[in-house]
Amino acid sequence: MTKPLPDHGDRHTVVVVVAIQAAISLGYFAAMAHVVLHLKVDLGLAAGLIGLVLALRNLVQHTLSLPVGALVDVLGPVRIGVLACLLRAAGFALLGTVSSLPWLVVAAVLLGTGGALFHPAAQSLLAGLAERRRARGYAAYTVTLQIAAVLGPALGLALLNVGYWLVGLTAAALWLGAAFLFALLRHGPPVRAVSGVVSGVRTVLRDRVFLGFAVVSTPAMLVTDQASVVVPLSGVDAGAVTVFVCVLAMVSAMVQPWCAVPGRADRPGVLRAGLLFAAAGHLLLAVGAGGALTGLVLVAALHGLADGLLQPAVFQTIARLAPPTRFGAYLGVQTFLSGLFAFAGGIAVGWSFDRGPGGATAALVVLALIACAAAACARPHPGQAIDARDAAQARLP
């Protein structure tokens, strides 16, 4: 089991990282909550091309996560975080102002590259804290994301009355503000890797316990991310999409105080429950429950539970298994595997929806089955088994 770093008084780090999360998430959800309708209605792209553009962003982001995670360990999260925000600001500016497919591809690449840099940078700052501070800090980080996920689509919907170009430029401005906030963090975690990127990735690939967890958790990204894609592709309007995203975010935020208890979120039962909630949400969509507002709210609540459990489950388990100087590399490998799977799945889902109602139903059922299969494979890792044994012995008279 990884021993946490000493608590070096990083309340300032938590406050600034949470402020960064507020800025970038508000911009991200304002733009991304309505991007499918923008690409479909404003630009007239087919569902397959929409799926390709969105999946390309995921592919770039999560493919680059493999080397970038280890790079954060070497160079430090602050400089990487500033660069990430600048790249994503450029990507959102393009997304709101271009209409040709080649430029949309450029925007997707910039957004994906910025995301590959941002997530290991921000999460490495939190992973470097002591366990109690780390659990509470990540909960605050996630709650802030979900609050922004409630406010962001509403902001985007208001700006959409002027045009999607304003949505994109507003998101870009918020990411520029986040770059400034990153610059306020002059000190990252006190311990950094001294060897290079290749060495960091090689260390992860030799860790069989972690690789087992990475494989089991790989479908989590696909089954949660596709919820925000399949709902607008199902034919609901912008108002219903906004309701869906907001309910999902509120439920996810409500779960975070429960996950903030140290040692709770990395239990395999939490990962398993999150996957099963996602499966139930996709099955309800498959039987047409999303056609009515009540059914759509229920689906959003199930996906909110899934999202609220899976995010801290993955983060806390990686923080538990990774050496303090290698969190970025471990996160990078897990994200790389998840991103490749999500890319392939996103392409398949978009293609299936182009085939008509039968194809859409089949795609939703397959997503549910994938989530169920992953949940069935979730098992305690050796460190958890030892902890459980020690706890049981401590209760003996």
Rank of each mutant, 00 (worst) to 15 (best):
G128T: 01
T97I: 07
L66V: 11
L59F: 14
H303E: 14
V74P: 08
W351K: 00
L86R: 05
V41Y: 12
G288A: 00
H119R: 13
A183H: 04
D207M: 01
P323I: 09
V365C: 05
R186W: 08
D73E: 03
D7C: 03
W175L: 14
G345A: 00
L233V: 10
A362I: 01
A47R: 13
G115L: 03
A388I: 08
P268D: 00
A171I: 07
S25V: 01
V162K: 15
G177M: 10
V150K: 02
L110Q: 06
A344T: 10
L174D: 07
L64H: 00
V231A: 03
D266Q: 14
A148D: 01
R57I: 04
G128D: 04
A301Y: 02
A55L: 03
L155I: 09
L101K: 04
L222A: 15
L155E: 12
A273T: 11
L129T: 06
Y28E: 15
L95R: 07
Q311A: 15
A130R: 08
G383I: 03
A154E: 12
L309E: 03
A108Y: 00
V72N: 08
L396I: 13
D387N: 07
L117K: 05
V78S: 15
F336T: 13
A378Y: 09
A148C: 10
L52N: 04
F29Y: 14
V197A: 06
L39T: 12
L66Q: 06
G304Y: 14
Y138Q: 11
R133V: 09
I80S: 13
L86M: 14
L159G: 01
G81Q: 11
A84F: 08
A344C: 03
L176V: 12
A33Q: 13
L340E: 03
A385N: 08
V16M: 02
